[in-house]
Design a protein around this nucleic acid. Structure first.
Lengths: 214, 214
DNA sequence: TGTACATCAGTGAACGCGCGTTCACTGATGTAC
DNA sequence: TGTACATCAGTGAACGCGCGTTCACTGATGTAC
């Protein structure tokens, strides 16, 4: 029989069986794996809905490893949000290279039913929008950077077909916010009213296309 | 010294000091107090961010009382969402009686900086939008009912000024979703970029007014 | 109207569990010589 | 190039804490007579 841990004092007993240390490259792979795992799980279950142990497991590590790479769960969440938004942006820009009407391409990329249905791979602003408001400044920063970049991209793709008095920037900011709102609302009503959910997606795609001058 | 509880067996010791039972009217007041407390706290801290003990305390009761009135925290959350949306709707309709252009009144009511800044009293769809997608069907039902009523109200107030080809219903659904997205995005960026947050609110109010034919 | 007693809303201790974070420890990596 | 050893990424047990839910119990209310 053994006291598992004598609290105040430096003599401690426990069994460490492990093996350890890892190349610098492996370490940065692990960091990336943690960010990707967190990014996916936070989107699927919410930031409060995921434990650090879940993230470590998903990344093939233990929860302790997380604290070697990040100061806190909050700091990891900020890194995960930035990473998710960077990756979404890259995918969107890759598509835009191919198409001829960028505004139509951007709206198609964002407002569609597969995007609504696969939250874990979708835009992190739609997955965590209302949570970010309650988190710290670093998460707000990540969201603001992603949102601003999205709005600027839309602004650059704005057509001037409709006779609206608002500026391109105002319309771009509104379309960006509306893209988020449409996916959030479509997801929120989906379980109870799938037809309404479909209507929201279809309506937003069409109306925002008109606002964007497609 | 007393064993506080002997587990398997029917003989139990603990101290019950209490006083009890309450009129039917008091009981339904308590139920209402629980719903109101939950509604406020869920908006402020998120559903996962509030414990049943917090809700009981805010309502002036204990956490146990909650399970006399509701089967689970989830069931209370659904009741709280319905109640919050009903109350918001009533406030919006009361304002509309006074104004002459209902669409303008509705947009002013929803898209403004005090609404962005006071999440605990604001629209529950903006506060919990991305959380509801991850909850059960009863919460989706409450959201869908509130969203549908909001969209129908906007549809009834739709002007036909702009030469848009989309239907009134499509524009109403889009404006409803965009209202949510604008407040969600404005809150999410507020801590890191207050100027961007203001711009989102101002832009959405103006552009959605144009889409709504104000 | 007065009395006897069943009902049931509310209490608070306890349940098992998982949370975020810390920390003593490991041992291959990577560096200094 | 070869050797000695400090570094530090990762482990996993433990921390204190709060979670949602259950349940034995209370006693005024409200009903049956």
């Amino acid at each position: 029989m053994v006291t598992p841990l004598t609290r105040l004092g430096n003599s401690v007993h426990c069994d460490y069986n492990v093996y350890m240390k890892v190349t610098k490259e492996k370490a940065s792979q692990h960091r990336r794996a943690l960010v990707r795992a967190a990014s996916k799980l936070f989107r699927r279950h919410g930031i409060d809905g995921v434990g650090v142990a879940d993230i470590g497991r998903e990344a093939g590590l233990t929860h302790g490893a997380l604290y070697g790479q990040f100061n806190s769960k909050q700091a990891l969440a900020a890194a995960a949000l930035t990473d998710a938004l960077d990756r979404s942006y890259d995918r969107m820009m890759a598509l835009a290279d191919a198409g001829d009407s960028p505004m139509g391409t951007y709206l198609d990329f964002f407002i569609n039913k597969p995007h609504r249905d696969d939250i874990a791979k979708g835009c992190a602003m739609t997955a965590s929008g209302s949570e970010v408001a309650r988190q710290g400044k670093n998460l707000s920063r990540a969201f603001a950077d992603g949102f601003d970049r999205f709005a600027k991209t839309l602004e650059g793709a704005m057509g001037d077909a409709p006779r609206l008095r608002s500026t391109h920037r105002q319309r771009a900011l509104t379309i960006a916010a509306a893209c988020i709102g449409a996916i959030v609302a479509a997801r929120a009503v989906a379980k109870a009213d799938p037809a309404l959910s479909d209507d929201i997606v279809d309506a937003a795609r069409r109306v925002l296309g008109e606002v964007g001058g497609v």
